[in-house]
Amino acid sequence: MGKVIVVTSGKGGVGKTTSTANLGTALALLDKTVAVVDADVGLRNLDIVMGLESRIVYTSMDVIEKQCELSKALVRDRRVDGLMLLAASQKNNKDDIQPEQMKAICDKLRTTHDFVLIDSPAGIERGFSNASAGADEAIVVTTPDVSAIRDADRIIGLLQNARIEPINLVINRFSPQLVGNGSMMDQADVLDILNIDLIGVVPEDSAVITSTNRGIPLVYEDGSPGAQAYMRIARRLTGQRIPIHSFEQKGLLNNIVNWFTRKR
């Protein structure tokens, strides 16, 4: 039986879809069977980020309306073994799906896949309850800024009410330079507020933008700091124990500069 993990954040634009695409691909590269599910009905994006948009024929809506079998609606990623995408319908909206129907799809997918990753829409309404309905675990993605953190805090409260645990945190778009000169919250500040387990820190990386536009998840081209961060998170998801990477700037000069410019 596989695990169903919802990737969510509350706030939009913090990297839920990018994280889902990269973690799904990374897990498949680690020889796991993975299904990624776009739960953002009406505003689907996961297919584009994964570069599979031209191959979508059926969506989760068709499965729910019994227009086709679940296995037929799954699109196989040809670049890696064991990675499937279930796209969301672009014509419908979130109220057309019931949480129980999403849960049924998740329960079916977990019998055939090691990991089922659900890409949640932003917000706390129906879209979120649909996305989290079938989930055992959650990954909350946040950027280190106050508005994203407040929304993440809200989402964590809702996930806890729904008895979904563990809830793991991904800090995305982390900039060591900005932390170094005191204008961005550091890891410890974020964890102090949210008080959940950190599963990884993804540094700000311009390669993310190009990979999104090309439809090739970052982790296919190992080497960029972002790709390495997602690979480490995927390894942690498979149960490997890898210490959290420190992105602090090194060097004596930096230490001196940081000491003088840090926020007290």
Binding site: I124, V146, I149, R150, D151, D153, R154, I156, G157, L158, Q160, I193, N195
Partner: peptide, 24 residues
């Protein structure tokens, strides 16, 4: 911890929170 969007009310008396009260 009381997280964003959560409310804890006790009109009868005092509240003691074994945690944080987060923004929101």
């Amino acid at each position: 911890t009381i997280r964003s969007g959560q409310t804890e009310e006790f009109p009868q008396g005092s509240l003691i929170i074994y945690g944080d009260v987060n923004s929101g």
